[in-house]
Design a protein around this nucleic acid. Structure first.
Lengths: 350, 350
DNA sequence: GGTATTCCAGGGAGCGCTCTCTCCAAGGTC
DNA sequence: GACCTTGGAGAGAGCGCTCCCTGGAATACC
């Protein structure tokens, strides 16, 4: 802290507060930390001293001894191979409603516990920066949003013994807790809905295929259709951005103009697909029915409004925070997984 | 730090590295901090010891004595009165391309300096949380994105002597550095362009009117039109979200169907306005010309693509970071302001 | 060759806090 | 009244680091 206060002096220390109140350092410390064995009268006195001096505990000193910082990091990671895309990483993550919902959910749990959340983007070239930050002990643990099964970060955190919780099933088995949603079930809901409304030429726009969740949604969609006799399902991969959805839809309809039902692996890409369909002169849902995934704000903002698969991201993030807190508490609880259920939200597009 | 390493032991200390290398604590410290007065041979030896032990400096211990943390916060603040809006704060900030660009620009400057950036949302009920975080000395300074002239945070940071730089001219005069863009000039560019392409019935959708930048854009637009004899300019205020832009456009066109030129205070709202115009059956730009503001990714993603006022957000954020670093370096440099120039980017919508 | 000067490694203090241990006083027991 | 228990305050050590000061070896100077 470089708080050069206006009056030029540093912020007061425990010792100074103690002197002001005429008690010992220990007593002040006890009051600050809410230890009950303090005479109520003294407690009151010390509280006045704290207010009078404007005392704030020095975090560095405290965490030097407690080995806690009372803050956790939300790290949004991105592997090498996707870093050089048209739309820069930071633009993508700070434009996708995903992150906001995750943050909100995590804060819901962390704030009442007095734990701070710091958000750190970690695109690949900066991985070591972030890793250094984490190793230095700025935070007690990390909520890791990782978007590829090639991402080395989960493994690294594991090796370093830094408590962490993942936002999805890890690509490789790892002794870490994670939350997830039944991706395949979500895709199945979409498939069955499209069939139920009488569509026969189905296709899908998937997310990046190095993401387990993308793979699952694609596989789930295909499997559900196979059950109904559809052996072949055209697909194109996007990267979860609106532009990539638009592009994928164009490709798909160029190759398969007969498509009348489309499952898109997130709402943002679905919005892009809607754009493409408009340009192609296809009406939604009359000519083509579209189902998205996420039930994000984007689903409500496009025309027609998106029928989509709801994913309880806020609750999932809250659960991640809870799992992390548990992990930080005791050294080595068994890694736990918590799986959430998706559901279909019917709107106008299908 | 609660790093309970897999093998159950804590991470090594300076002392242990010193012992490994057979030198003193001081020497290791010197090597770590790149002090030049170390025998190259010893330096080499110490480096091997560091690698072998996997040593990472303990941040708490270090910053206890240096009073630096080598990290700064990017705080996105929001005043009371706007917290209870349809779209939650976190959704809004993590959906607007604004934040991504700011982050990218700041990191550009901070990363090479080895300074970490932590992002903290600070909607009003959590202000004290964030303030506590900052006061505890987690960071050396703050880049403050504040969106209202009622926001108490700048003043508070100032009082606490926490180094900070603002992202726009503060609502009230304050001895803090800030960057800004010539908002009025930007609005004037929009106004003149709309006139130049032959529009006569101009209107504008502004941002929240408690933001100095919104006020400036509105005032600038009106002033520029006044010069050309337009005494009255219909306007409606949004809150910089797509939905609010759509809503504002509806209101505006319901009251003033003759409008043929529209200046919207950011691209996101302009996208919403485009949506509304499409619903109303107005062609853009034939019936209504639309000019946005920001030149964000959103301007490229809508149909027709937006003519907009470019704001060099990345450079502005980079400059903020530079100003902050300067402020952290020495106690009390004179607060500086750096003003950037907007420019018109012509696309399809006007 | 003796002294002054530089160079560079080591030792010690101390940053501000927590936490354990000690100690004192008050109350309870027989 | 002597003893033990208990509640609650203070003293001390030490977390891991940096930074200043000291001192010895190497070099330079007269």
């Amino acid at each position: 802290m470089t708080i050069s206060r206006p009056d030029g002096q540093r912020s007061p220390t425990l010792e100074e507060v103690a002197e002001w109140a005429g008690v010992s350092r220990s007593t002040v410390s006890r009051v600050i930390n809410g230890v009950s064995t303090v005479d109520p009268e003294l407690r009151e006195l010390v509280q006045r001293a704290i207010d009078a001096t404007g005392y704030v505990p020095n975090l560095a000193a405290r965490s030097l001894v407690t080995r806690r910082t009372d803050s956790v990091a939300l790290v949004v990671s991105e592997p090498d191979d996707r870093t050089e895309q048209a739309e820069p990483f930071l633009n993508r993550i700070f434009t996708d409603p995903f992150l906001g919902r995750i943050t909100a959910g995590a804060l819901e749990v962390l704030r009442p516990e007095g734990i701070h959340l710091v958000i750190m983007p970690a695109e690949s070239p900066a991985h070591h920066h972030v890793l250094r930050y984490l190793r230095q002990g700025h935070v007690d643990g990390v909520l890791l949003i990782s978007s590829s099964d090639e991402d080395p970060l989960p493994q690294q955190l594991c090796d370093l013994g830094i408590p962490a919780v993942l936002s999805a099933r890890p690509g490789k088995p790892l002794p870490m807790s994670y939350v997830d949603v039944e991706q395949q079930v979500g895709a199945k809901l979409a498939a069955e809905h499209l069939l139920a409304i009488g569509r026969h030429h189905l296709a899908t726009i998937s997310g990046p295929l190095d993401m387990p969740s993308s793979q699952d949604r694609l596989a789930g969609f295909r499997a559900a259709l196979a059950v109904h006799g559809h052996a072949y399902v055209p697909s194109a991969a996007g990267n979860f951005t609106r532009a990539s959805g638009e592009q994928a839809a164009r490709e798909l309809f160029a190759a398969h103009p007969e498509i009348d039902g489309l499952f898109v692996a997130n709402d943002l890409m679905a919005e892009g697909a809607l754009q493409a369909l408009r340009d192609l002169g296809r009406r939604v849902p009359e000519d083509v029915a579209v189902v998205g995934f996420d039930n994000s704000i984007a689903a409500l903002q496009c025309r027609p409004q998106l029928t989509t698969i709801h994913q309880p991201l806020e609750e999932m993030a809250a659960e991640m925070a809870r799992l992390l807190l548990a992990r930080i508490g005791k050294a080595d609880p068994k890694p736990r997984s918590v799986i959430f259920h998706p559901r279909l939200v019917k709107r106008e597009s299908a």
